[in-house]
């Protein structure tokens, strides 16, 4: 190879930096996605922090139907269901609902419930003041539990949403918990 005005190895190095940068960008998409979804609520993930119930005005004129769905993730042996299938609330009204869970196995399991709301944009307006999904639940062998969840729907909920579904998936996270201790 003959010599050139520009050292090709040097300019290749420059492009290699771009490559490394784009690899980092791939990873940066993970937090970016979370932040974007937190702001816009478009992936239906409600906040996993307890909301404070400020004495909001109750919009008596409006009724919103909230439906509940539960599912045990694949490989998870548990009975998990909502005590009511759906409930009608006024926006701003604090409401409590209960969920039933049973560990039918003969070993203790640590479970984590992950909520998801459809349609996604409703997630921003679903304020939970108390939820079993905020932390992991230890279920003793054979144990049955009634778990409460308290929420209110923000009166700012867009007018075109009159019904939304809150779905919980229950995961067995015992293995991860053991691994961490």
């Amino acid at each position: 190879m003959s010599q050139h005005a520009v050292n090709p190895v040097k300019s290749a190095g420059k492009w290699l930096l771009v490559v490394i940068g784009m690899f980092g960008f791939g990873y940066a998409l993970v937090p970016l996605y979370d932040v974007f979804c937190d702001i816009t609520g478009i992936n239906g993930k409600p906040s996993n922090q307890a909301a404070a119930y400020q004495a909001v005005e109750i919009d008596e004129a409006r009724v919103v139907k909230v439906e509940f769905m539960t599912r045990s993730a694949g490989g998870m042996a548990s009975e998990f269901k909502p005590m009511v299938q759906s409930i009608k609330v006024h926006p701003g009204q604090l409401q409590e609902v209960e969920f039933y869970v049973k560990n039918p196995t003969d070993r203790d399991i640590v479970a984590q419930a992950v909520p998801s709301i459809s349609p996604g944009p409703a997630a921003l307006y679903m304020n939970k003041t108390e939820c079993f999904c905020f932390e992991q639940q230890t279920l003793k062998a054979g144990e049955e539990v009634i778990m409460p969840m308290r929420f209110y729907v923000d009166p700012q909920l867009p007018q075109d949403i009159s019904v939304f579904t809150l779905s919980y998936t229950l995961y067995d996270v015992s293995a991860q918990v053991v691994a961490q201790n």
Binding site: W15, V18, V19, I20, G21, M22, F23, F25, G26, Y27, L29, V30
Partner: peptide, 14 residues
């Protein structure tokens, strides 16, 4: 290629 192949590498690594 240099813009998106690294993103693929990130995806498979994840």
């Amino acid at each position: 290629l240099i813009a998106v192949m690294p993103v693929l590498a990130g995806a498979v690594t994840m």
